[in-house]
Amino acid sequence: MLEARLEQSSVLKKVVDAIKDLVQDCNFDCNDSGIQLQAMDNSHVALVAMHLKTEGFALYRCDRNIALGINLVSLQKVLRAAQNEDVMTLKAEDSPDALSLVFENSENDRISEYDLKLMDIDQEHLGIPETEYGATVKMPSAEFQRICRDLSLLSESVAIEATKEGIKFSCTGDIGKGAVTLRQNPNVEKPELGTTIELQEPVALTFSLKYLVNFCKASGLSNTVTISLSNEVPLLIEYEMEHGYVRFYLAPKIGD
């Protein structure tokens, strides 16, 4: 059986908020490393991989692997009843048909108990190869979100080029074109506001801005975002949490 307690309900609320518009039904795989999730959108263009590690839970017990088949819209309805600071306890039997969620407020004078019906989801699991990326860029997540939003008003696609000078996002659309270049700037005082680039080789790829804007819903999970690129392989966008992560993979657009 599973029993997992989060000190802050906001952890799970934010994660579900970040992925609910990309995938609808997915398995939360509970095992001794924590709770993991891997799901692709319907078009198989994007994949989200999430891991809430055991260390992030105030209490974590999982006797054997349990797959919780969950509709994220339904889960979000239940999570709306949890205040960010509430302690959240998840419980499920082995091969469960429901997930129990208990929210307790910090004054310990309100306890809310919900059962969420589970679904049978036979999801194919993808093998994501370990990749040495040509370029790994770390920047403020708000900065990346702003660039994606601004350029998505001009075009459906963005060309991302990483060189030792910096990272350049450029696009061309019906009304014109735009480009944003971020130079390497470690910002020693406030590292989370800096932009750092590790370059093995220059890379240049094109991606759909619709998906990038969607991924940026996860910006609330971390002040920084790490973007990993290599020519002709999917883009990796990672939001690191204290005890886990949310990663998005996006297939490139192969142009003429």
Partner: peptide
């Protein structure tokens, strides 16, 4: 317009 690839071309299903 660029052709959008899918992840199946890059990630094998287990």
């Amino acid at each position: 317009e660029h052709g959008q690839e899918t992840l199946d071309a890059f990630f094998g299903s287990l």
